[in-house]
Design a protein around this nucleic acid. Structure first.
Lengths: 124, 124
DNA sequence: ATTATATATAACTATATAGTATTCTAACAA
DNA sequence: TTGTTAGAATACTATATAGTTATATATAAT
């Protein structure tokens, strides 16, 4: 019965994790989240996105390329301009999950702070 | 009626995105995903995690610190050993969403390849 | 106290990448 | 054609960070 050699540390699992890590990496930069955020409303061309985000042209272009290669955005040239659009709305699910959780935590901490505040007169 | 100055490009949205980006950044490294993956089964101490993942001791220690500060893991010293445990299972939701999507895409591409293969005899 | 062991920290190196300045390409307009 | 504009590609710099080696800390055992 063939069995995986457990001594081989460099073996299997790593390769499967790489694409997942790469995907999260795309979402791990503020500039790219900014871009995604302003495309929630619908397609925009590069100049428009640039104005909305304040990102430099070359920089923006690189980020758009990354997002497109990750199949998060789609690219549609129209004459001289190029329009980008959300291709995979799942990213918003991901962002919302994270946002909600971060918000919960803040709430919780604020709550604890209020409750345990050293200067409150009571707490019986 | 006070209105946000839309000329101020460096203003608001960025700060709100930073914590989200930071959270995704924690999940964007293979080594950390490896760690999370092996903690799915339950708490483990550092040595055990090291054996399971093959990561070096100091490196592992740094990753565990990051994951703990992100409140993804909890840290429980027990004598000389320190046990780490998943504190926020939401990460698995996130990973599953991404995995499922990546899998769908692969399926889809394989499918297209099969269908359009230049060497197939027929296609009607 | 002394030693051994588990984990953390510090210092360092090497690599990846965000941002920028510059050049290139392609579409449209004159 | 020539020029103009939008976007992409290239080259470069500066910073961040993964990994490693070496050192420090802390608990347990002798």
């Amino acid at each position: 019965m063939p069995k995986t050699d457990s001594r081989d540390k460099t073996a299997k699992p790593t390769e499967y994790l790489a694409p997942v890590a790469d995907y999260f990496k795309v979402l791990s930069e503020i500039s790219r989240l900014q871009i995604l955020s302003c495309l929630r409303e619908g397609a925009m061309n590069v100049s428009e996105i640039g104005e909305a985000t304040g990102l430099g042209q070359a920089n923006l272009s690189k980020h758009l390329k990354m997002l497109t290669e990750a199949e998060i955005l789609s690219r549609k040239p129209q004459g001289v301009a190029v329009y980008y659009e959300i291709q995979d709305p799942m990213i918003f699910e991901l962002c919302e999950l994270v946002c909600d959780r971060l918000y919960q935590r803040m709430q919780q901490k604020a709550d604890q702070f209020k409750r345990l505040s050293a200067f409150s007169p009571s707490k019986k």
